[in-house]
């Protein structure tokens, strides 16, 4: 009987490719963010609304869209004059570093790009374990969900740097308490930067976009 000690991360290969992605992006001056949320929290709407704000700040960006099927989301983004590439994951519930690595040649063909927005598959569990090579993970939750979400899905909140609480226009019509949601998120991750937005009214979008642009430009 042989016992072999291995002692490595199960996702070591994914982490290696993520590190290569991170290096390739940084060499070309592109800052990448990974947007995660439950399905329907408003990831694509947030990107659409950010487009005008980032344009006004002179920040070029491209979007890689992860979905199980179809190219509905990339078509939505393209309507705003933003280059978008759809990755269909088939049955997989998350993007991985390998899939993202295949999109990088396309990203580098786009001119004047400072920011790459990777929209992950709508899922609050699996994306937490897969590093894609991003510099920032942005969690989106909406006022149509429960304000206790951070306590129920701690891994993904703990893996994020920023939290966008979206659909704040709905809050008065639901039992969602924005103050409680903030407290719960900070309990799980005291370092989270929290923003409140409504893609319907446009509230808070400017503040979020200016913060993001600041981080992208400061990081260079």
């Amino acid at each position: 009987m042989h016992e072999i000690l291995i002692e490595e991360k199960i996702l070591a290969r994914n982490d290696e490719i993520a590190a290569q992605n991170r290096k390739a992006l940084s060499e070309r001056g592109v800052y990448a963010i990974n947007i995660v949320s439950a399905p329907g929290a408003g990831k694509t709407s947030l990107i659409e609304k950010m487009a005008a704000e980032l344009k006004a700040l002179g920040m070029g960006f491209a979007v890689v869209e992860g979905d199980l099927e179809g190219d509905l989301d990339s078509k939505r983004i393209e309507r705003h004059g933003i280059p978008a590439l759809q990755i269909t994951t088939g049955r997989a519930c998350h993007l991985d570093a390998h899939q993202v690595s295949h999109s990088l040649p396309w990203v580098f063909e786009q001119s004047g790009i400072e920011l790459l927005v990777i929209e992950n598959v709508g899922n609050m569990v699996c994306p937490a374990e897969y590093d894609l090579g991003e510099e920032m993970t942005v969690m989106v939750m909406s006022a149509a969900e429960g304000d206790d979400k951070p306590l129920k899905y701690p891994a993904i909140f703990s893996a994020s740097e920023a939290l966008v609480i979206n659909k704040t226009d709905l809050a008065p019509h639901t039992d969602f308490d924005i103050g409680k949601a903030r407290l719960n998120a900070l309990k799980v991750n005291p370092n989270l930067k929290i923003f409140e937005t409504s893609c319907r009214t446009g509230a808070g979008i400017g503040e979020w976009a200016r913060y993001l642009a600041g981080v992208v430009r400061h990081d260079k």
Partner: peptide, 16 residues
Amino acid sequence: EIAGGNELDIVSMEGV
């Protein structure tokens, strides 16, 4: 800070 509990590792294997 978190100092443990986020491990996802392969430790060892046995075979003949």
